[in-house]
Design a binder for these strands. Structure first.
Length: 734
DNA sequence: GAGCACTGC
């Protein structure tokens, strides 16, 4: 039986932002928008009603007049060193602006325009599209560069890349001298990389301005980290020559633009109208006690009462998705035969790619697709055909407690910005509806935007990077939003204990410098450097590669027994680390035996089949191979001594103890464990091969609180190794 | 005997 419908209260909102003012003129203009040619964007003053809080000027032009945005934007970039571009979805800012700037001569003297994206897939797809629009092959004038995949050449002038990659480039070229313009796209997402990049670019811009004018700029900053770094560094090839000033463009969604403008000293902001279809927002009249039940009711309410169009439901995790999917199937059977035309499609990141692809397939005629998704559908993938969005208003969020050194993964309320982003998914192809499963009053109480990642993650990697960039005073670094002092101090302490920092808090030589060059978690970098002393570099290379990817084993709920049996073939009694090495090696041997020289596609197919049979996630394994190869290259460059310990894993486990000593745990009488560094009571996660074994002392890689405090990736060590191999942290009791 | 949103070098 379908439960009685949730009462839905109607609200007239445009994209949930502010109530749409009843102005005939504005509505007419919105209609005009749909027939504007690609290289024209509309800017008009009526929109300022949506931005009443803004103190900085918007570009205004007379309403109703189409304005060549190209000319106007280029002028703005020429007259402002930093520009904030508020671009709505569908405004074409990411694809068009770099082309405008190229045509306006910003690539003279072989300079490049760089555009950063938080996600790999965005960098690739946008670059492809722009190359096509320019009528050139990818890698000529237009290219992209992401980890493991660089299509740029010496002739590339418009370069799309991930923000993390640009940060790495800054380690090699602190002035970022090849770029005349850098565009930071999707800045409002506030990933760690974006935040660090913004602080860095602000500094680079100042330093370049000073170098190019040959005198101190007005905003004199004798403490500029870049300057200090350059003073310390060896002569750069461009020294003595003028460096062009750096133009910075920060592109952001509307709600957060003011933060960026203020951060860049009141930088000018311009607004570009998008071409999103209107989305009607509906709220429930009362708070819902069981949101999964409300989801079900709403799905069927839409299915039975609304016009055709697919439904996108935002849920928090795999378990919720699988449970809702079963319930939809069950309830559908009770509908009249003519209404049983629902097709459910789950999508979440750990779902194998082939199954993910189902959401992109065209909906068969006469059917309605119900997509049950995690946050993956919020920004990472765009699913066509969505007309209805159901948003219960929850998200599973990761946060980090620097004091306990523990991550937690808990379900929290979404932010307003997130709710807005979700509802926007209903208006990409036609007008749509978004059903928020909470009352409107609750929406008003939500946080404006999601807490920036930098305030809720382990900062060790960020601090190490900053140190490598020459930022000595990390606590004083000009973050757009400062992480807590405690979090920074804890990370400094952590890096010191790993030997990356000296007593004076400087990068140590060579260990600290080596660690900062490796694209790994600092603890894994340390393990790698240690490994050549323990004659197990090859084993450790495999281990850190396997630990750096999403979970290697895939176990769908309905086949959990089979999956467990498959895993036993690889299991080592000594722990998860050696188990991971076994998977990597067995997969490699299997492929070596069947590898063909000519048919790469066939090889991949064979590998996918092997993965499926062994309940291994093929995407993760492929990713681990890529990382392995990349890190192997680094290890060679660093001159680390290559060696394998063969079947004698004792040295390898000693190396684990020497590297992960901060993550050691001792068995307690009741069978639980106590983490030595923080004193917390923890349990071995049930997915570990050591679950239900009785090892006295273990090391682990992650401590995550979900329903309990679980340690993941666990291996057995000898307690005495800790005092022997990490005396800086453990001393023998007298 | 539990279950893990997403991204990146």
């Amino acid at each position: 039986m379908v439960s009685p419908p949730v009462t839905i209260q109607k609200q007239a909102h445009l994209q949930g932002c502010r109530k749409l003012p009843s102005r005939g003129g504005l509505c007419q203009l919105l209609q005009v928008l749909s027939c504007i040619p690609n290289n024209y964007l509309l800017l008009f003053p009526s929109l300022s009603v949506f931005f009443q809080n803004y103190s900085y000027p918007l570009i205004l032009c007379r309403p109703g007049i189409l304005f060549s945005v190209e000319k106007r934007l280029v002028e703005e970039v020429k007259s402002n060193d930093t520009l904030i571009v508020v671009g709505e979805t569908g405004s074409g800012k990411t694809t068009q602006l770099p082309q405008f700037l190229f045509d306006a001569g910003f690539c003279h003297d072989g300079k490049t325009i760089g555009i950063t994206q938080p996600r790999r897939v965005a960098a690739v797809t946008v670059a492809r599209r722009v190359a096509e629009e320019c009528g050139v092959g990818l890698g000529r004038k237009v290219g992209y560069s992401i980890r493991f995949d660089d299509t740029t050449s010496s002739s590339t002038r418009i370069k799309y890349m991930t923000d993390g990659l640009l940060l790495r480039e800054a380690l090699l070229d602190p002035y970022l001298s090849r770029y005349s313009v850098l565009i930071v796209d999707e800045a409002h997402e506030r990933t760690v990389h974006t935040d660090v990049l913004l602080g860095l670019l602000k500094d680079v811009q100042k330093a370049r301005l000073r170098s190019s004018t040959g005198k101190e700029s007005e905003e004199k900053n004798p403490d500029s980290n870049i300057e200090k770094n350059l003073q310390l560094s060896t002569l750069k090839p461009w020294q003595g020559r003028n460096i062009h000033p750096l133009k910075l463009i920060i592109m952001s969604a509307s709600l957060d633009a003011r933060v960026f403008s203020e951060y860049f000293g009141g930088a000018r902001a311009v607004h570009i109208q998008g071409r999103q279809h209107p989305v009607e927002i509906l709220y429930t009249r009362h708070p819902q006690t069981d949101y999964l039940e409300s989801v079900l009711v709403t799905i069927f309410q839409i299915h039975l009462n609304e016009s055709p169009g697919d439904i996108l439901v935002f849920l928090t995790g795999q378990e919720e998705i699988e449970s809702v999917e079963r319930s939809v199937q069950d309830q559908m059977r009770q509908l009249p035969e003519g209404s049983r035309n629902i097709l459910t499609c789950p999508i979440f990141s750990s779902l194998p790619s082939e199954q993910q692809m189902r959401v992109f397939a065209a909906t068969p005629a006469g059917f309605r697709k119900v997509i049950l998704a995690t946050n993956i559908a919020e920004t990472s993938v765009t699913i066509p055909g969505i007309k209805y969005v159901i948003d219960p208003g929850f998200v599973k969020a990761r946060s980090y407690d620097p004091n306990k050194g523990m991550e937690s993964l808990i379900i929290i309320l979404t932010s307003k910005a997130q709710a807005l982003q979700r509802s926007g998914r209903a208006g990409r192809e036609s007008p749509g509806k978004c059903f928020r499963l909470y009352p409107e009053g609750e929406f008003e109480k939500l946080e404006e935007s999601t807490k920036p990642e930098i305030k809720r993650c382990n900062l060790s990697n960020v601090i190490l990077q900053l140190k490598a960039l020459g930022v000595d005073d990390v606590i004083g670094f000009d973050f757009i939003e400062k992480p807590s002092r405690l979090a920074i101090v804890k990370s400094l302490e952590h890096l010191f204990l790993l030997g990356a920092l000296t007593d004076e808090c400087k990068l140590s030589n060579p260990v600290g410098h080596q660690m900062s060059r490796l694209p790994l978690d600092p603890m894994y970098s340390k393990a790698l450097i240690q490994a050549s002393n323990f004659n197990c570099l090859d084993e450790m290379l495999i281990t850190v590669a396997m630990l750096s990817v999403e979970s290697i084993f895939y176990s769908p709920r309905e086949k959990s027994e089979e999956a467990k049996t498959a895993m036993k073939c690889f299991a080592s009694p000594e722990g998860d680390h050696i188990t991971l090495i076994n998977v990597f090696r067995v997969a490699n041997e299997f492929l070596e035996k069947r590898r063909t020289v000519t048919n790469k596609e066939r090889d991949e197919k064979i590998m996918r089949k092997w993965c499926k049979q062994n309940f291994v996630n093929s995407r993760s394994l492929r990713h681990a191979h890529d990382i392995y190869r990349q890190i192997q290259g680094h290890a060679e460059q660093m001159g680390l001594r290559f060696a394998s310990c063969g079947d004698d894993f004792l040295q390898f486990r000693r190396c684990l103890a020497a590297s992960f000593f901060l993550n050691a745990a001792l068995r307690q009488p009741e069978g639980i464990y106590r983490a030595l560094a923080s004193g917390q009571v923890v349990r071995i996660h049930p997915s570990s091969v050591l679950n239900q074994t009785k090892a006295d002392c273990v090391i682990f890689n992650e401590l995550v609180q979900t329903s309990q405090k679980y340690i993941h990736n666990v291996s057995i060590i000898d307690y005495l190794w800790l005092t022997e191999l990490a005396p800086q942290f453990y001393t023998m009791p007298n």
